[in-house]
């Protein structure tokens, strides 16, 4: 990039497309490159944001508007840090992380179905009902789109937005001191998947998930599911991994619920809260025993 700045001017027609698509009619004062200039070097991006058609002034305007909330957030963070209020955990007390009785609760969740990704025909929605509970409902269909590629379909997902700090900095949940995930839900008898997203730095770890099943009773009564974190198993891109270890609880950025139980029909999951709890008697880190593979066998 610096070389380009020094030796010539380059007019990329698309900032996101790299080496291949740079227009050839750039003017170069001194011809130093014999091959196409690579304007910048990057891998896949974790966060694919849609391109916006804003001009510079609009970008600045939008940024300034964002600044107000960000500064407010930053102020809270600073005051929180100044207080240095230590975290006291009492066994049996549930620290509610997600509640749905706030007006902003709806903005921190995203419902996606395979229909949205052109993977199928399921549909789902998420809203907060009159009792101030989150409702995740939809219709699961296993009809496979006839595109010749896909062989199975049918999923609906509800994912929290990525946790962040002020000024769009990345953040993570600090759950290292807790041992259990506690959910108060009312389902319809179907089983849901709870996912804890722990994306790592390198791209092979981006899809790391710790999963466990959320069984629901069905009926008018609410249920409290208390699940040890040690029960969560590691999977990536839908495949359970051979090497299992307990979730690193300080690296969780999102939590999500998935409806993939291969049963066609409507589903409905009401969520009161999602919390975490400390049980000092629970010392297990991973519930899954490991075996030594025969010598020379590659783990695949």
């Amino acid at each position: 990039m610096n070389l380009v700045r020094f030796f010539g001017r380059i007019i990329p027609n698309d900032a996101h497309n790299l080496c291949g698509n740079i227009r050839q009619n750039y003017t170069i004062a001194r011809n130093v490159h014999t091959s196409v200039v690579c304007s910048h070097f990057t891998f896949h991006e974790t966060k694919r944001e849609p391109k916006d058609d804003l001009n510079t002034v609009q970008h600045i305007w939008r940024g300034m508007n964002m600044l107000k909330d960000e500064v407010r957030m930053w102020k809270d963070e600073v005051s929180e840090a100044v207080k240095t209020d230590p975290l006291f955990l009492f066994p049996g007390n549930v620290d509610k992380v997600f509640k749905f009785n706030e007006p902003n609760a709806l903005h921190s969740w995203i419902a996606t179905a395979d229909q949205d990704n052109k993977d199928g025909y399921s549909s789902c929605e998420f809203f907060i009902d009159e009792n101030q509970k989150g409702v995740f409902q939809g219709f699961l269909t296993q009809t496979v789109p006839k595109d010749g590629e896909r062989t199975r379909a049918g999923y609906c997902n509800l994912k929290s937005v990525k946790k962040r700090k002020s000024f769009k900095r990345e953040s993570k949940f600090e759950w290292g001191m807790y041992t259990h995930l506690v959910l108060r839900v009312r389902g319809d008898g179907r089983s849901y998947m709870i996912n804890l997203h722990t994306p790592g730095y390198y791209d092979v770890f981006w899809n790391d998930l710790y999963q466990f099943v959320l069984y629901t009773r069905g009926g008018p009564y609410w249920q409290v599911s208390k699940i040890p974190f040690s029960k969560f198993f590691l999977s990536s891109k839908g495949k359970i991994q051979d090497f299992q270890y307990g979730p690193s609880l300080d690296d969780i950025t999102n939590i999500s619920f998935t409806m993939v139980d291969k049963i066609e029909g409507p589903f409905k999951l009401e969520i009161d809260y999602i919390g975490v709890e400390l049980d000092p008697n629970h010392s297990e880190t991973s519930a899954y025993e490991m075996y030594k593979l025969p010598r020379g066998m590659a783990n695949s």
Binding site: Q115, Y121, S123, G138, F139, T141, T143, E264, P266, K268
Partner: peptide, 15 residues
């Protein structure tokens, strides 16, 4: 549940 009626995508509204 056949594919014909799936395009509307408003099955969940029936609830």
């Amino acid at each position: 549940t056949d594919g014909k009626n799936m395009d509307g995508g408003d099955q969940s509204k029936t609830d």
